[in-house]
Design a protein around this nucleic acid. Sequence first.
DNA 1: CGGGCGTTTGAACGTGCTCAAGAGGAGTGG
DNA 2: CCACTCCTCTTGAGCACGTTCAAACGCCCG
Lengths: 255, 255
Amino acid sequence: MPNKLIKSRTAMNATCAACPSRHLCLPSKFMDKSQIATLDRIIQKMMIVHKNDHLYYSHETTKTIYAVYKGSCKEYWIDGNGNECVTNFYFPGDLVGLESVSDNKHMLSVVGLEYSELCVIPLDDLCKLMQESEAILKRFINITGYKMRNDRSVKMGVTAEERICDFLLNIIYRMLERNISLDNIPLFMSQLDISNYLGISHETVNRMFKNLQRLQVLKIENKKMTVIDLAALEKLGRLDYSLDKDQKKQSFIAS
Amino acid sequence: MPNKLIKSRTAMNATCAACPSRHLCLPSKFMDKSQIATLDRIIQKMMIVHKNDHLYYSHETTKTIYAVYKGSCKEYWIDGNGNECVTNFYFPGDLVGLESVSDNKHMLSVVGLEYSELCVIPLDDLCKLMQESEAILKRFINITGYKMRNDRSVKMGVTAEERICDFLLNIIYRMLERNISLDNIPLFMSQLDISNYLGISHETVNRMFKNLQRLQVLKIENKKMTVIDLAALEKLGRLDYSLDKDQKKQSFIAS
DNA sequence: CGGGCGTTTGAACGTGCTCAAGAGGAGTGG
DNA sequence: CCACTCCTCTTGAGCACGTTCAAACGCCCG
């Protein structure tokens, strides 16, 4: 049975101030404690989804967005031929549901890849808050801009190898932002999910993974990835994250 | 020589109130004349670019975004191998530069595909305005959400035919939003631009165009496209714009 | 008028898809 | 606790789509 569940954040002892991913989410380094407390005031509920439970389905109406507090989710839609098109993966600190705000109706579905907790952010309350606090408004704008960059960057590659490498680099850098070690990065999505995300057959995804292991670039074992040669991976991909990744990341995280 | 030029909007007799694309831009149907006037107060300048002139280059610092008032632009970056990766095409009413706000630095370059006029929107002033006016704040959030949807939807296809069709459908629906007839839609980008946008060789783009003409789906002549059989094109693409396109569009435009 | 860019077409090659089949693992129900 | 099913991962073989390379043409612009 579906296990979608709403709890109060206070009951779960979850606050923005104590959130390990706050540096990627609505709080920013420039906010003082009272500003962050205003976020806690409007974000009162937490949505719990277990693995394979849906956070929401396409076509549902909505006036909220979500922030991943713990876990990870897959965003997708079903095309006219019944194929699942994966549009995004979300990790702690990511805002979920931004695409739906323009007409208060989801056009994508979101499902948990593992046990996950998501902060429920009422859009109207957030708007009011952004009008009161310049810091929160600017932060929100920065987050949406950063998301546009990030979303765009992944599927630029032409060959399957480029696309796989860019995808993995994207995951890796998002893990770095979250201070997660590059040893044994957990990949909660299946290879089929990745293939539906990249528009590549799942057999090719598998073969590319094998190939990258044969090249001693990384190791994937038991759905956990260990990066061996990041520079080699960057060379195989199409994006130059290496250019000024630290600056880029820091400037956003600090903003 | 580059012909980037800044003029005053009043000198060009350009106002938000009289803009033909205002229904896609910051003004919304819910704003009264005084609210729209506040937009005109902060948007005082117009940037003029001729064909092949750059609006801005990657790595330039910025504290402004732009709105296409007239014309069209191409957004791109150059990858490690020197290949041009086209990331977007912008038409009247579109906001340009949103990806850059998170660290005040462009990571993409934008160049005019034709003679174009773009309203210069200082970000700080816009933020202040959004704090004063809930309508403008909500409108901005809706636009960013709508852009995320739109950007995502285009490159989902797996086969070259699907990608070409989805691209053309995207152009077509954006033209419809702008009340432009489906006869002789001008395509200011080259087939090479389209190939760099879709990650497909330009020869394949050409062959697909020819094929769609052979199938009596559309006609392309002299960089102008006439749609003959929209339903057939939708069937060849991967996205179902037809599902509730009118509702979707109306709900955003009206928001 | 010449040069360069964009478009068009053909031919051969190669990447990645499709189809097929089996192994391993997780979850479910008896 | 085991048997069963379904899902995921894996590997192979053949094929098709799309790329690459090449060449020619038209067109715009200097």
